[in-house]
C-alpha cells in the first residue's frame, strides 16, 4: 500500500505525478478488441486498464425478466484479483455491485432502449488494473463498446472525475488523490446533447468548489470525448461499408 504523501500538491502547484491541476492522465483508447463480443473497447487512463465487452441484443434469461416495451440492460463491473495492490477477492463486492448499477444507469439514457423490446444487452466491464477513477474509465469504455456493437444511441457517454486534493480543485483524480484528497466528483456526460447522466460526490466541498469541480470535470469529459471519436475513426475509417462498394 502506498503511504500517505506529505503533500498532494507541491510548491510549484504540480501534483504527485507531475500533472497540472487541470491536466488529464495520458489516455489510450482502442475499439473492437474482443473478437467474440458484439462490441468492445479498451481504455488505459494513466495506470487504469479497463476492458469492456458488449453482448446482444439477445433473448432474456430468465424469460420473466424481459420487458414488453424495452430492452433490458445488464451490467457487470468486475475488478480482477490482480488489479489492486492487495489481492482482491474475485467475488463481486458490495462496491462492485453498486458500480455495476451506477454504470448501467449512466449509459441507459443514451441508448434507444425501446428499439429492441424483449431483448437484453450484456455489458461486461473488467478492470485489469485500478488506479482511481475506474468508474469513469469504465463508462467511457462501455459507451464506446456499445457504439461498436451498433446499438443505436443518442450520444456517446463519456465520464471524467474532478475533485479536491489539498486545497486545489483538480481534474482526473488518481488513487492517492482519491484516498487522501478531500473530495471526488465523477461526472458522466453526453457531450453533444450537453446532458449529464451521472453526477456523484463524496467528500466535502463548498458550493463554489462543487461548481468549479463539475465544470472542470465537464471540460475533462469533452477532451476524452475527442479521444473516443479518434478511437472510432482509427478503427472504422479504413473499414469498408457493409454491402456497399
Amino acid at each position: 500500500m502506498t503511504d500517505k504523501p506529505e503533500k498532494l500538491i507541491d510548491k510549484k502547484g504540480l501534483r504527485l505525478d507531475g500533472r497540472k491541476p487541470d491536466e488529464l492522465r495520458p489516455i489510450k483508447i482502442e475499439v473492437g478488441v474482443i473478437s467474440n463480443a458484439d462490441g468492445s473497447a479498451y481504455i488505459e487512463q494513466g495506470k487504469n486498464k479497463v476492458l469492456a465487452g458488449i453482448y446482444g441484443p439477445r433473448e432474456v434469461h430468465p424469460k420473466h425478466l424481459a420487458l414488453p416495451d424495452r430492452m433490458v440492460l445488464k451490467c457487470r463491473y468486475h475488478m480482477a484479483p490482480f488489479s489492486v495492490q492487495e489481492r482482491k477477492s474475485p467475488a463481486p463486492s458490495r462496491r462492485e455491485i453498486e458500480l455495476s448499477k451506477v454504470i448501467r444507469e449512466s449509459l441507459e439514457p443514451a441508448i434507444f432502449v425501446e428499439y429492441y423490446p424483449r431483448t437484453m444487452v450484456d455489458i461486461f466491464v473488467e478492470v485489469l488494473q485500478a488506479d482511481g477513477g475506474t468508474r469513469c474509465a469504465s463508462i467511457t469504455a462501455a459507451a464506446l463498446a456499445l457504439a461498436d456493437a451498433g446499438i443505436p444511441m443518442r450520444d456517446i457517454v463519456v465520464a471524467c472525475a474532478a475533485g479536491k486534493a489539498g486545497d486545489t480543485i483538480v481534474l482526473d483524480l488518481m488513487d492517492e488523490e482519491d484516498k487522501y484528497g478531500t473530495a471526488d466528483v465523477p461526472v458522466a456526460l453526453m457531450p453533444n446533447l450537453n446532458a449529464v447522466t451521472l453526477l456523484q460526490m463524496d467528500g466535502i466541498l463548498s458550493y463554489d468548489e462543487f461548481e468549479s469541480a463539475v465544470n472542470l470535470a465537464i471540460e475533462g469529459c469533452k477532451k476524452i470525448y475527442a479521444m473516443q471519436k479518434e478511437a472510432i475513426r482509427s478503427k472504422y475509417a479504413s473499414a469498408k461499408e457493409e454491402g456497399e462498394e
Binding site: 456493437a149 444511441m153 450520444d155 457493409e242
Partner: peptide, 29 residues
C-alpha cells in the same frame, strides 16, 4: 438531426433526406 450509429452519413440532396449507413453490419433480432 443526429446520428444514432457509427456509419457513413449520406445526404440525398434531390430528395432532401439524410441517413447513416452502418459501417458494421447492424444488429439483428
Amino acid at each position: 438531426i443526429y446520428s444514432e450509429i457509427i456509419g457513413k452519413s449520406l445526404f440525398d440532396l434531390a430528395q432532401k433526406r439524410v441517413s447513416v449507413h452502418p459501417k458494421l453490419r447492424g444488429i439483428k433480432v
